[in-house]
Design a binder for these strands. Sequence first.
DNA 1: TCCTTAGTTCAAAATTACTTGAACTTTTGA
DNA 2: TCAAAAGTTCAAGTAATTTTGAACTAAGGA
Lengths: 120, 120
Amino acid sequence: MHIWHPTRDQISLANVLAVLGDPTRLAIVAYLARNDGNALACGTFNPLGSKTKISYHLAKMREAGITHTEVSGTNRLITLRRDDLEARFPGLLDSILAAAGDLPPLDAGTSPAEDTAIEG
Amino acid sequence: MHIWHPTRDQISLANVLAVLGDPTRLAIVAYLARNDGNALACGTFNPLGSKTKISYHLAKMREAGITHTEVSGTNRLITLRRDDLEARFPGLLDSILAAAGDLPPLDAGTSPAEDTAIEG
DNA sequence: TCCTTAGTTCAAAATTACTTGAACTTTTGA
DNA sequence: TCAAAAGTTCAAGTAATTTTGAACTAAGGA
């Protein structure tokens, strides 16, 4: 199961900005960062919308080079491409995450990493 | 002759990213940064497209809080809102400008319609 | 095997963004 | 006063994006 990802140098600044300039996707990236190191399944983001919607937005993020998607059974495990983004656009992701830090949490009630994270 | 601008705390991260996620506007902001301190008239950006098009994009940038527009005679003088952006989203603009730094200059042999020349 | 879980894909609808040209305002200069 | 310069605004068209629901695949468990 090979899923296409752009190589590091195929990642474009305008596209990364456009993709993160959407509230749903900004929430996804902020949540991924909060759970850094842990791969999250798509279902983690269910509070943000329907399965179809999340699938659409995660595909956009993958195609922009922001996330990496790995197939594992029936799950897709999503991680942030921190190293690639840092190499391509130094400081960019960190400043976005810092600014996005005061966004409301994904699921107000459960603690972030406990239930949904899949340890790597 | 007061033109509306958002206050500092009205500037939203998602909107700033969305507005800068457009090749024309990214080129405008890069050019403004290169001429830091100098206010530029809209006509400066003519190589990027028609008057109407530039007016549209500059309005988007102003409404997002990225630029400041001051009326001076028949001109509108455009400046970057560096301090406000830095206060609101520390490091964000600098990292974007650094990444956009290798964009081709406005007038270096590129024809007006060539948006493809503008990439991260 | 059958059923459930996890997620994708497709097509249509709804929404939003971008571009264009014509008409307009305001200011400046002759 | 008349005309040009600098931009804006409006209306229309085109294009891109987002959302939805139904149908689908693939893996796992009883």
